[in-house]
Design a protein around this nucleic acid. Sequence first.
DNA 1: CACGGTACTTGACGGGAATCAAGGTCCGCG
DNA 2: CGCGGACCTTGATTCCCGTCAAGTACCGTG
Lengths: 228, 228
Amino acid sequence: MQTDTVLARELRHHYLFCALTEAQLERLLASAALRRIAAGERLFAHGDAATQFFLLRSGCVKLYRLSPEGNEKIMRLIRPSQTFAESILFMEAPRYPVSGQAVEPAQLMAFDRETFLGILRESFATCQAVMAQMAVRIQAHWDEIETLALQNSRYRVVHYLLGLVPRNAQGRVIVTLPTRKMVIAAHVAVTPETLSRTLRGLSDEGLIEVSGEDVTITDVDTLRRHMH
Amino acid sequence: MQTDTVLARELRHHYLFCALTEAQLERLLASAALRRIAAGERLFAHGDAATQFFLLRSGCVKLYRLSPEGNEKIMRLIRPSQTFAESILFMEAPRYPVSGQAVEPAQLMAFDRETFLGILRESFATCQAVMAQMAVRIQAHWDEIETLALQNSRYRVVHYLLGLVPRNAQGRVIVTLPTRKMVIAAHVAVTPETLSRTLRGLSDEGLIEVSGEDVTITDVDTLRRHMH
DNA sequence: CACGGTACTTGACGGGAATCAAGGTCCGCG
DNA sequence: CGCGGACCTTGATTCCCGTCAAGTACCGTG
């Protein structure tokens, strides 16, 4: 099938799937589903029984949890070509540990848990890719737990902004916020009001300049030092 | 060697190592080191190059990070027979993502990264055990991120207390705090003062009774409902 | 172009937790 | 036994940030 070869080519470029044989890739695609969801549509809810994990092809998906009072904390923002929910592969009673919902209209592939587990059994290289991926996620979690636990809201916002800057950038840098400010606020665990005030504060101190979705960092190193 | 057989028997009971063959176990032990560290002694620092992961045999170890201002957030308290720092196995440039320090005098085994990776290559069952372990940790991280981001200090303390209670316990339960209250405070991300006041508040409401290191929960279900 | 809705901003206010400071308790040690 | 030093508790104060409320800007739509 035409689409299959397009998808196959796409998957070959993804480090999770690049070690698969032709036969394995075919098996995986045969069990996979292509899904489109509208902005605001929910993919799965926290606690749902899980049989699939996902690869985002386009759009934007948020992984989040709700507090008893209904407040939302965004755990992770998924960008195209990222996979998510792989950890359900290895649970005995697999349930999604967070909710997933589209922030923008999204197109994604849903992979079957059992099929992929079967493939893992045959391919140590793919095992290793999966484990490396999980190690990266664990690393990211440590970082997030640290910033949530240790720092105030200004620190978290600055940390987030710096995360948008290319690794070795210097001097004056312009970054574009990837989504609405409300979503970013939920991601750094502050209210939209506080985010607004924090950006204004940084702006008043001349550290950044805000204009709509674009944020100009007047000097990256100064901002980095600003958090010590 | 005598100690080797003792250690071998011990490892056989651990789910990470129970799938190994005799030969693999021998290889692993040959490359492993037995270490004793005093209370307060540091095992590794955040950012150190990593070539080993660990199994705690006795004592207590804390994994933590320091904020720029020097505040400490304890990420995880390690108890005997738990492994930690496995995620360094799969990093390209392995560095410890947190610091590790003994809270009490501790005895532990240090396993060589390369040796274990070699064994993983030969044993899918062990791969699966490692991946399951990482999935559990990821799950625990989601939970921690949620409680840190969404909940107030009282909630976090209650959550911590309930975590000490056996899964299906009911009615009146006595739990013993595993370490000093200062350490617990750093673990639930509050100051010692706030922990003290929170326990007193719960005590005044009749939900718990505190006497030194022992906390009596007057009714587990009432406390569980208390957080919704 | 007026409209309604959503996102964002700004201000006023209050509460919860950190901070600062001062006892109190428990322990090991000379 | 008296002493020093952790650890823990309690009180007073401060301040950050969430909440509530009002106002502004920016859409797409009829």
